[in-house]
Simulated assay, not measured.
Amino acid sequence: MKREDRSALIAAAIICFFAFGGWFVLPPIMQWLGTFSPWLALAVAIAYVGAFFVLFWLRARYQRRRRRP
């Protein structure tokens, strides 16, 4: 297994763990936060979804920098 393949595998595993773990835990967290403030629960949900975009953007940026000569 090449180093790039191993790196991609590790990144995919981390992303899947983050995605599936978060979607499993997020509803109870939002319900608990909703007892304090519905806006806080909404902000946490938006931050979680936004984290995906940031994660993929950072990964693409890292790969572009690594491939330049």
Rank of each mutant, 00 (worst) to 15 (best):
L26H: 05
A41F: 00
V44H: 01
L40W: 01
R66A: 13
R6P: 11
F56I: 04
I46M: 05
A19P: 02
D5H: 10
A45F: 03
W23T: 12
A19R: 09
Y48Q: 01
L9Q: 10
W32C: 05
Y48D: 02
I10D: 10
W23F: 15
S7D: 15
Y62I: 15
L40D: 02
A11I: 11
A45P: 02
P27W: 02
V54L: 04
G34W: 03
L9I: 12
M1V: 10
A43R: 07
I14S: 07
G34C: 07
K2Y: 10
L55A: 09
E4K: 11
I15V: 11
F36W: 09
F20S: 11
M1W: 06
I14N: 04
P27R: 00
A45H: 03
C16F: 07
F20N: 09
K2N: 13
W57Q: 06
L40V: 01
R68Y: 05
G34F: 04
V44N: 00
F18R: 04
Y62C: 14
L40Q: 01
P28F: 03
L26G: 04
F20G: 10
R68M: 06
Y48P: 06
I46H: 02
R61V: 14
C16M: 09
G34T: 05
Y62E: 15
P28Y: 03
A12M: 08
W32M: 08
R64C: 10
A12G: 07
F52T: 04
G22M: 00
W32T: 08
W23M: 14
T35L: 07
I29Y: 00
E4F: 11
F17W: 14
A12W: 09
S7W: 11
L42N: 08
W23R: 15
A41I: 02
V54W: 00
L42G: 08
F24Q: 10
V49F: 03
P69G: 13
F24M: 12
V44S: 00
G34R: 03
A41N: 02
F53M: 07
F52K: 06
A43W: 04
A13V: 04
A43P: 02
R65K: 14
R61N: 13
I46R: 06
I14M: 04
I29A: 05
C16S: 10
I10R: 12
G22T: 00
R67I: 15
A41V: 03
R6Q: 14
R65I: 13
F18M: 04
M1L: 11
Q31W: 12
Q63E: 15
R65Q: 15
V54T: 07
V49L: 02
A19T: 14
F20L: 13
V44T: 01
I46F: 07
C16L: 12
G50K: 01
R3L: 14
R65L: 15
A13Y: 05
W39T: 10
Q31M: 12
S37D: 05
F20A: 14
L26K: 07
G50T: 01
A60T: 06
W32E: 09
R68P: 12
F36D: 06
M1K: 07
R61H: 14
R65S: 15
P27C: 00
L55M: 05
W39D: 12
R61W: 14
F18N: 04
I29D: 03
R68N: 06
A47Y: 00
R64L: 13
A8M: 12
F24R: 12
L9D: 03
I10T: 13
A41H: 01
L42M: 06
M30R: 04
